[in-house]
């Protein structure tokens, strides 16, 4: 058992960081709406009060681009995680409940997808995407649903075979009751943990794609893309690179800190 105090502060810090990133992603685009406007005369302008992070190599407002990129990462990743969790959960419960060939087929499919590390799936989809959001979204969601499927299926199988579910069935309760009272309370906390993990994975995958140049295409601001673009100008304007790095690292740190850090204690 870890004392509550030593567990609580990282989680509190996690929530604080996440709130800060969310605030920046939501309010930033309102405060600095113009992320596309180029002012080539003002390229690599140093930070000022009006432009806290200066301007980039094309004279665009860095903070506006950063806020817009953060918002894009968060909503796209969030959407992916929600879809993956929903799909994985439904199929997992279905597989555990039905058993038989439904289970065999779904498990075979999941095993196949599992042999393909998530990033590879996303990469193939990014080749189809041509910089578009929808295909990337499908790719990310398809890469992630298996984890939810496996967890939900394994837990549900155990639960459905447990005495308390048997007792409920003997008492005359139907599937709705069993899902609501027996499965959901057990699955929900695990799903939440997995979703915070999945969110980090999705945000990371998006920025990785952007960074290696096969994700969202310019001129849309995206964290990984901004880093690649800033790299050649690192010696003149380091904040160009460090700002997206900081936003990404803080977001990931927040999501890591949210989870219980001790795996077993």
């Amino acid at each position: 058992m870890t004392p509550l105090t030593s567990r609580a502060w990282p989680q509190r810090l996690g929530y604080l960081l996440l709130a800060a990133v969310l605030l920046f992603a939501l309010a930033g685009p309102l405060l600095w709406p113009d992320y596309a406007g180029q002012q080539l005369m003002r390229f690599l302008e140093t930070p000022s009060l009006a432009e806290p992070l200066g301007r980039d190599q094309l004279g665009r407002s860095v903070i506006a681009r950063l806020a817009s990129a953060a918002r894009l990462s968060l909503w796209l990743a969030g959407l992916c995680v929600l879809s993956a969790a929903l799909l994985g959960c439904l199929l997992g419960v279905l597989s555990a409940w039905r058993g038989g060939w439904t289970d065999t087929v779904l498990r075979g499919l999941a095993d196949g997808v599992l042999a393909l590390p998530g990033l590879l799936i996303v990469l193939i989809f990014s080749a189809m995407a041509q910089g578009g959001f929808l295909t990337l979204y499908i790719g990310l969601a398809l890469a992630q649903w298996v984890e939810y499927f496996r967890m939900t299926r394994a837990r549900s199988r155990l639960l459905l075979a447990s005495p308390h579910v048997e007792a409920s069935r003997l008492l005359g309760f139907g599937p709705a009751h069993i899902v609501r009272r027996h499965l959901w309370p057990e699955l929900a906390p695990m799903l939440l943990t997995m979703m915070s993990f999945g969110l980090a994975t999705a945000i990371l995958a998006l920025s990785t794609l952007g960074f290696v140049g096969v994700g969202i295409q310019p001129p849309t601001p995206e964290l990984g893309l901004m880093m690649t673009e800033a790299l050649p100008h690192y010696s003149e304007a380091p904040q160009l690179l460090l700002a997206p790095v900081a936003v990404l690292a803080l977001t990931l740190a927040a999501l890591v800190l949210l989870r219980p850090l001790e795996v077993n204690s």
Binding site: S162, P163, H164, E166, A167, S168, L170, L171, R181, H182, P185, E186
Partner: peptide, 15 residues
């Protein structure tokens, strides 16, 4: 109806 050896396992744990 049935009574179980370990009653804790006969109730949904989080309800």
């Amino acid at each position: 109806q049935r009574l179980y050896q370990d009653p804790v396992q006969a109730f949904a744990p989080h309800v």
